[in-house]
Amino acid sequence: MIDMDAEAFEDLVASELDALPDEMVAGLDNIVFVVEDRPEDGSLDLLGLYDGLALTERDRYGMGDLPDRIMIYREPHLHACDDIDELRGEVHTTLVHEIAHFYGIDDERLHELGWA
């Protein structure tokens, strides 16, 4: 387990988000990334969550719609990792996983691609 305060973890998430390929993030529209300590149920099992309607499921989407959210949970990440390199890798994987859900890629396909 790693000890890292909220501000340092947010900086790490921002750094990993900036490092993602342009083609992965270019299509992100009306979406916010949120870092929270834990999921609502308080568990340490969930590393991230996409809250929104995937692109593949939208009829119309436009002005006035609330943004979709990708939540990254700090404490579960810190609990799951033994060092900073492992933490960076896990945050990267979580970001890719949740962004994939935005694009409509389900968990089965993520497993096939090696992203879950």
Rank of each mutant, 00 (worst) to 15 (best):
I2N: 09
M4V: 03
M4I: 08
M4G: 06
E7H: 14
A8I: 02
A8V: 06
A8N: 11
F9G: 07
E10N: 11
D11V: 02
D11R: 15
A14S: 13
A14Y: 10
E16D: 06
D18S: 10
D18P: 01
L20W: 11
L20H: 12
D22V: 09
G27S: 08
D29V: 03
N30T: 04
V32F: 00
R38A: 01
G42T: 05
L44I: 10
D45N: 14
L46A: 12
G48P: 07
L49R: 13
L49P: 08
Y50T: 02
D51E: 15
T56S: 09
T56A: 02
E57Q: 08
R58C: 00
R60W: 14
G62Y: 02
M63K: 04
D68T: 01
R74T: 05
P76S: 07
H77I: 03
H79W: 07
H79N: 13
D82T: 10
D82H: 11
I84K: 15
I84Y: 15
L87E: 11
L87W: 03
R88A: 09
E90S: 13
E90W: 08
V91K: 01
H92S: 11
T93Q: 15
L95S: 02
I99L: 03
G104A: 06
I105F: 02
E108M: 08
H111T: 15
E112P: 03
L113V: 07
G114Y: 12
G114Q: 10
G114I: 09
A116E: 15
A116F: 00
